[in-house]
Design a protein around this nucleic acid. Sequence first.
DNA 1: AAAACAATCCCCAATAATGGGGATATTAAG
DNA 2: CTTAATATCCCCATTATTGGGGATTGTTTT
Lengths: 204, 204
Amino acid sequence: MAAKLRIALIEPSQIVRTGLEASLSSFGAKFQVLWSFSSISHFTSFSDEIDPDIIVVNPALFDQTGAEKVKTAINNPRDARIVAFAYSIISESLKRQFSAVLSIYDTPSEIAMSIERVFQKEIDDNELIQSGYTPHPVEYDLSDREKEVLVSVAKGFTNKEIAGIHNISVHTVISHRKNIVRKTGIKSVSGLTVYSLLNGLIEQ
Amino acid sequence: MAAKLRIALIEPSQIVRTGLEASLSSFGAKFQVLWSFSSISHFTSFSDEIDPDIIVVNPALFDQTGAEKVKTAINNPRDARIVAFAYSIISESLKRQFSAVLSIYDTPSEIAMSIERVFQKEIDDNELIQSGYTPHPVEYDLSDREKEVLVSVAKGFTNKEIAGIHNISVHTVISHRKNIVRKTGIKSVSGLTVYSLLNGLIEQ
DNA sequence: AAAACAATCCCCAATAATGGGGATATTAAG
DNA sequence: CTTAATATCCCCATTATTGGGGATTGTTTT
């Protein structure tokens, strides 16, 4: 790895962009943040003209439902490694879509090491696949109605209230809830609430 | 406001510290980040030797239960304005303890304006008090046991399971839950889960 | 066209939670 | 020393949820 790693940064916070650029430039021999964007659409409009080795992106910029895949959302013709740089909780299904997940609390040297490790891991990945490991495929596929009911559950409404809100009978609410539990494997209201928060179904 | 505002920064992320320092220095005529700390204890060991006009602090560094008051946690003999610099959701009760709440998504100039506004607001504050306004006083005061039970509720355990975990009878669990509902005013499990997340009682 | 899924409704029995009312012992604060 | 708060326990009745079993009518998907 003689050449410098060319980094493209997609990060909405100007403060964080400035901080990352300055911090990574202190490892000048190894890294160069050559491109810096505040949004994915901003990145996309330039993605054919640049050729980064690594795309460092804030995972909060993605649809957190898991419906949108990171690899299709990011136009990446030269197959750069995509690394997340997170400063809040993100869902497991989103995490799995990145080569690495960095944290805002990592020190610059930790970040540098993680990025280097991403390139070392390329070899290991093949071994993992040979040894029967497949990257976790699970992604819950809730129907629109099920999501609506889930949101109401997460907001703390009782089945009777949910029935009223959606103009359906309590029986139907219960049916939907049974399917939600079956699909997600999450039985408790609190678990479903956290799931809804993580997947961007509700805010606050 | 002829003199430069002297800023002390308490922020665990080195990346963010670097970014804020660089960004605020571009307003060199008005601001100076003179001191920079990674934790409150680090700040405290120097707080008698420095005299900032403003303390910019990451609110995540505080006990999010609201039990610990920001003004007592931060040794602030010269009564500097305390401003929060947040990059995740924080509870309303914590927000109210700061002169301003900045966001990591604010641009440097927005941050600069907000900080200037803090000093203008000093005058207005007196008027607000005269006109009958009092800063919201509500702060739930859950006992240790109640917090423990709340955490278990938020983790999705049933009353029976919680009783087992804490070696008390289901009756006692129910009693604690009654008191939690009475004190917080939050009736639903999902509401209590969000409360626990916001107040840092549970992670994930 | 058949199969799978979505959305709606129903019954039943068991389990869990809510809301009201207690009680007692200990500790902390005024 | 009295009061308030905490922590523990109990009873009762009502309401809610869970988990099992259905059914029907559409709409996609293969």
